[in-house]
Design a protein around this nucleic acid. Structure first.
Lengths: 222, 222
DNA sequence: CCCGGAGCCACCCTTTCGGGTGAACCCGCA
DNA sequence: TGCGGGTTCACCCGAAAGGGTGGCTCCGGG
């Protein structure tokens, strides 16, 4: 795999910080992979080798989205990048066309390896390494928010209630509330409304031009 | 008062829609009054004849702000434009230097009259006409929101809880909840978080460059 | 002159949120 | 090996929010 063109990877997410983080993370392997930041459904439809679906504040397992990407004429393979390793979710993603189900906790080199194997046609499923330190970047990292806290905040910034957040993240509602509590403390708010405002002012609003979800638990008419 | 320069009026509010509405309302009397849309504390400190403090989603009676304006070297007189005629509020405003306490429900001609009388040195207090139709404009008017509904929504968009909203508007908490209910129905949301999002997307965020309140019940550190 | 809309408020009830505590587990680091 | 932080969850409690109903006044238009 050494002397061919670098793999063209499109990161499917609504959060630019995710793309930036992955870009920075994989930059030192630019001879093997490159992040192409383009709209797959836009006017500039160049082929990408792998669509990397990041589940941050997204439908976990991306039921509809993974299938759509798998059918996408410009997309070679589909891989999911996540920290949720429910057997159910893994199977769902694979059955809908994903060739990779990769852990957020993977170090850069391992991630590149996995991507190359996916591109070769293998089906790569990370072993859930437990909960190691997570590399990369996410919205709110600078504000000392843990990934889960940031994720919950991102969903709050979409106006979702705790029950929906729990369903979408496959967490118990008690866990959701735990993350909310610690997140509130870190960002210095005491109510959901204030959290929403903090979110919109700190780039937690999903960038819907980047990728608009299909169906699912989103709020219409806003 | 017919053949002199038109009065220069600065509208003190955090909402551009308020300025636009007043501007449109008074436009046909431009020989007698003109709205100057400038930052009183900016680099362009031209004298204004009257600072017109609009209480929309603002500290009613504008305790500190009225006093500040009254002392302001570039401001001739201070008038309050409001729909709150609690005796307490009126006295407070007047004692802090306001020369006018004018009703939102005044038609354009009467408002111009009142402004001219204020400028001449009279102290003008509107008689609370009951609750007539309110002329002018306010954020959310196009969305069929009544003034009070819009006001409550504006305060929600600042992240304030109902108790604070009630205190700031001098309404009972039950009234606040009533307005919230009807407003939610009109804008099609079912939760405060969604209302906040609706607010930021429909220009309900205060424009703090326009005028930053002194003290009071605002949320710090957002 | 009645109706409807706006403003204002009260009482009720259920759901949601906010926050405190405690407790597992896994990890990396000192 | 112990500590801290992240992840996950449970239980509990009080406070806030959401929503329904009803009632009153004032106003303007048909």
């Amino acid at each position: 795999m050494s002397q061919s063109e670098p793999l063209r990877i499109s990161v499917v997410t609504e959060y630019s910080a995710i793309v930036r983080g992955l870009h920075a993370m994989l930059h030192r392997h630019e001879s093997r992979v490159m992040i192409v930041d383009q709209d797959l459904d836009g006017d500039n439809p160049r082929q990408v080798d792998i669509a990397l679906y990041d589940t941050f504040a997204q439908d976990q397992g991306g039921t509809g989205e993974v299938a759509r990407l798998a059918r996408h004429p410009r997309v070679g393979r589909v891989a999911v990048l996540t920290w949720n390793f429910d057997e159910e979710l893994v199977q769902q993603a694979l059955s809908r066309g994903a060739s990779g189900y990769l852990a957020r906790s993977l170090p850069a080199a391992a991630l590149v390896d996995a991507l190359e194997r996916v591109h070769r046609g293998e089906t790569v499923v990370s072993t859930p390494t437990g909960h190691g330190q997570v590399a990369g970047e996410w919205p709110g990292r600078e504000e000392a928010l843990a990934p889960r806290e940031a994720e919950v905040l991102a969903l709050i910034t979409q106006g979702l209630p705790n029950t929906v957040i729990a369903a979408q993240t496959h967490l118990s509602i008690n866990s959701v509330k735990s993350y909310i509590r610690t997140a509130y403390r870190k960002i210095g708010v005491t109510s959901r409304s204030q959290a929403v405002l903090w979110g919109v002012r700190h780039g937690f609003e999903p960038d819907r031009r980047r990728h608009r979800p299909v169906g699912g638990a989103t709020i219409a008419s806003l």
